[in-house]
């Protein structure tokens, strides 16, 4: 689709189009929202079905569900500590939602909702509000001591406090930019090399041979993107846990 007019059109894959006909168009139900809904349904189905049998020797889906559960639990308990267990449902939901978003985006014709900063920033903003509320509830006014380390000379306060506040506020931004930029970069690269295949393939007799090169690159890229898709979901979850650790223990 990208080779029409002999140009590389790598960004049109991120455009939002309404689905579900007139109803979808009038409420702004786009393919992005449809994929989010699909991810939520898939995650729920996976956990519900995986846990329905409760076999001692797990089947495939039960093993998958259990390993996902244990993976996130180890992550949360390892980072936050034992008292972090109450945040497990939150981090698990977040991790699975991001993971499924990234992985669904690797399927042909699918849309990657994590490639939109509106989505990733919303997720990061939820994390940010949660860690701030948790820190305020647990520590009250002592939370504001976070912005000025003990033992620093008092005349440095006009510099340290704004810098610490800006650093604190940059957390949701870096969290969202990291995920969004990784997904966009990966999908743009895939599309660019896929376009090369089409363009070079049309070069007459030598076309198919030259086109094999970008095709090989693209195959490697797909594997790499699957790695990135998992890694970014992991990074999102582990950073959330680190921030929760800061909120619970306040250094």
């Amino acid at each position: 689709m990208a080779a029409e007019g002999q140009t590389i059109d790598a960004l049109s894959q991120f455009e939002l189009t309404p689905v579900l006909g007139k109803v979808g168009a009038s409420v702004g139900f786009t393919q992005s929202a449809a994929h989010m809904l699909l991810a939520a349904v898939l995650i729920t189905a996976l956990v519900m079905y995986g846990m329905s049998k409760r076999a001692v020797v797990p089947g495939r889906l039960q093993a998958l569900t259990e390993s996902a559960y244990e993976f996130v639990q180890n992550l949360v308990v390892g980072q936050v500590g034992e008292e972090g267990k109450r945040f497990f449902p939150f981090v698990f939901t977040l991790f699975m939602f991001v993971l499924f978003g990234n992985m669904l985006g690797m399927l042909p014709y699918a849309f990657t909702y994590t490639s939109h900063i509106a989505v990733t920033f919303t997720l990061a903003a939820i994390v940010f509000v949660l860690i701030t509320v948790v820190a305020l509830v647990l520590h009250g006014k002592k939370f504001f001591g976070y912005f000025f380390p003990e033992g620093a000379p008092i005349w440095l306060a006009p510099i340290i406090i704004p810098v610490e506040i800006v650093s604190y506020l940059s957390r949701p931004i870096s969290l969202s930019i990291r995920l969004f930029a990784n997904m966009v970069a990966g999908h743009v690269m895939l599309k660019v090399f896929a376009t090369f295949v089409v363009l070079l393939g049309g070069l007459g007799a030598i076309g198919p041979f030259v086109a094999a090169l970008p095709l090989a690159v693209n195959i490697a890229l797909v594997g790499f993107e699957l790695l990135v898709a998992f890694l970014q979901a992991y990074v999102f979850a582990i950073l959330t846990s680190i921030y929760l650790h800061d909120a619970v223990h306040l250094h």
Partner: peptide, 18 residues
């Protein structure tokens, strides 16, 4: 390198916005 870059850029965005 990418992570370091993201940290700098996001802190700049936060500072400028504030």
């Amino acid at each position: 390198g990418f992570r370091a870059g993201v940290e700098v850029v996001s802190a700049l965005i936060a500072g400028v916005l504030l």
